[in-house]
Amino acid sequence: MRIKISFGGRGFVPFNYNHYLAGVLYRAFREADLELAYSVHKSKNIKHFTFSDLKGGRAVKDGLVFDMGGYFLLSSPRHEVLKAAVEGLLDNGVLQIGSERFHLERMEVLKTPEFNHMPVKLRTLSPINVSTMIKIPCGLKPWDLNPSEAKFYENLRRNLMKKYELFYDKPPSNTEVEIHPPSYTKQRRIEIKGTFHRAYMMDFSVSGSKELLEIGYEAGFGEKNSMGFGMVEVR
Rank of each mutant, 00 (worst) to 15 (best):
R123Q: 08
Y217K: 06
F15P: 10
N146W: 05
L82K: 07
L95N: 10
P171R: 07
M107V: 14
L140F: 00
V13T: 04
K162H: 12
L110N: 06
Y168R: 14
L74T: 05
N159S: 13
F229K: 06
S52T: 04
L90S: 07
L74E: 00
G88W: 01
K141T: 02
H19D: 08
L145W: 00
G208Y: 04
I97K: 00
R106A: 15
K111A: 06
T50E: 04
V24A: 09
S43V: 01
L166V: 04
R188F: 11
D203R: 15
V24S: 14
D33Q: 12
Y20T: 07
L122E: 09
R158A: 10
K135V: 00
K210T: 08
F167K: 02
Y164H: 04
T112V: 13
L36Y: 11
F29I: 07
K47Y: 01
K4Y: 01
K210W: 08
M107Y: 06
K141I: 00
T132F: 03
V86K: 15
P142D: 01
T132H: 01
S76I: 01
L34D: 14
M231D: 10
A32E: 10
T132Q: 07
Y164D: 00
L82F: 01
M107I: 15
F29K: 13
E114P: 09
H79V: 13
H117M: 13
M118A: 10
T124C: 08
V206T: 02
I190P: 14
N146H: 08
K135P: 00
K42P: 03
T195P: 02
V40R: 01
E100C: 11
W143T: 09
N146P: 05
M161A: 06
V24T: 08
K4Q: 03
G70E: 03
T50Q: 12
F221Q: 12
K55M: 08
E80W: 01
A84E: 03
F152N: 01
F66T: 05
Y17Q: 12
V81W: 05
K83M: 09
S207Y: 00
N116D: 14
D144V: 01
Y71V: 11
Y200R: 11
S207C: 09
H180F: 12
H48E: 04
G93E: 02
R158D: 13
S183K: 10
I134G: 03
N92L: 14
V65K: 14
N146G: 10
S75W: 08
G70I: 00
K55D: 04
Y38T: 12
A59T: 12
R30G: 08
G230F: 02
N16K: 13
G194M: 02
S6D: 09
V94Y: 10
P147I: 06
D144Q: 06
F229I: 05
M202P: 07
I3Q: 07
L74V: 11
G228E: 10
T195M: 12
G88P: 14
T124K: 03
E149Q: 13
I128V: 14
R101H: 10
F152I: 02
S207V: 02
Y184H: 13
N129Y: 02
G23V: 08
H180D: 02
K162G: 03
L122A: 13
K61C: 13
F49A: 10
F51P: 05
H41C: 05
L160S: 05
S209T: 03
V232Y: 01
S173K: 15
K4A: 10
V177R: 00
N225R: 14
D67S: 15
I215G: 04
K55E: 07
A28V: 08
